[in-house]
């Protein structure tokens, strides 16, 4: 009895707020991703996910995390993944490598690499690709915190992404977090790899510690210990201490980030 009434009241309040803001209620059709304990949830299409790693040394890990998710979004209708990068950052972070993608289980022909000259073109190209309903996912790599990629720009991108159900992965670097309208923000920390089946000294399957810094997945789990497998992720252990990352973990977002968080969650 109590619950429906409360929900109605909440809906009415939301409409009131929308009226105050003189615009229609935010049209984000993305539901909160469902999750079950014990497995990493299959995240739906149309989310903007930021993946933070500490530096260029882990750029392969964040790309692999994005590609594993993008692979599950590929269909006959949505057949292509786009990768956007500033042309002069390719030398620093490297470029996606065809034979490596093949080894990883992705057909290199399905990945289009867009190398742009400056940040304006970067945003334009990303938005153009987000508007296309034949794109499965976009992986955009940004170094540092460019001024143009502010809250407004990311809000535009996230609205487009959820309207067209195109997933956008922003691969970011460093410790600083600025406000953004992304739905989820991950922090990816590599973990010592598993055992190699035939060679004790060789690194085995890649393992990562993922921490959800922004957004919520039903179940409210914040930490995952994942192992990359051919067909997705597997959880290899319960979340443990953060090791060297414990001391450096930044404050959980600045005030504007909180604001952005609330906006992106209102629906």
């Amino acid at each position: 009895m109590q619950a429906p009434e409360r929900q109605q009241r909440l809906a009415a309040l939301r409409d009131t707020i929308a009226d105050i803001e003189r615009k229609p209620a935010l049209a984000e059709a993305v539901n909160r991703p469902r999750g079950e304990p014990g497995i990493f949830p299959a995240l739906p299409a149309g989310l903007v996910q930021e993946v933070y790693v500490d530096g260029a040394r882990d750029s392969g890990a964040s790309l692999a995390f994005a590609l594993t998710q993008a692979k599950s979004l590929l269909t006959a209708r949505r057949s292509t993944i786009y990768y956007v990068q500033l042309a002069d950052e390719g030398k620093h972070f490297g470029l996606p490598y065809g034979p490596g993608l093949h080894w990883f289980g992705i057909d290199p022909a399905k990945l289009v690499i867009v190398r742009v000259a400056d940040m304006t073109e970067f945003l334009w190209a990303t938005e153009e690709a987000t508007a296309c309903r034949a794109v499965a996912a976009i992986i955009a790599e940004v170094k540092g915190n460019p001024k143009l990629l502010n809250f407004t720009a990311s809000r535009r991108l996230s609205l487009r992404a959820s309207a067209n159900r195109v997933s956008l992965f922003m691969l970011r670097y460093g410790q600083r977090r600025e406000s953004s309208a992304g739905h989820l923000r991950w922090r990816l920390m590599p973990h010592r790899s598993g055992r190699h089946a035939f060679d004790d000294r060789a690194p085995g399957a890649a393992r990562w510690h993922l921490r959800l810094e922004k957004g919520r997945i039903a179940g409210n789990q914040l930490d995952w210990m994942l192992e990359a497998r051919k067909n997705g992720f597997a959880i290899f252990s319960k979340p443990v201490g953060l090791g060297r990352y414990q001391a450096e973990t930044p404050l959980p977002g600045a005030a504007p980030a909180l604001l952005g968080h609330r906006l992106s969650q209102a629906s």
Partner: peptide, 23 residues
């Protein structure tokens, strides 16, 4: 649609900006 998107991207960014991998 993908061909169209590539056309649009390369007409503004230049043909050398939109690339695919060839083995």
């Amino acid at each position: 649609d993908i061909a169209r998107l590539n056309d649009r991207l390369s007409s503004r960014l230049g043909p050398l900006a939109v690339l695919r991998t060839e083995m």
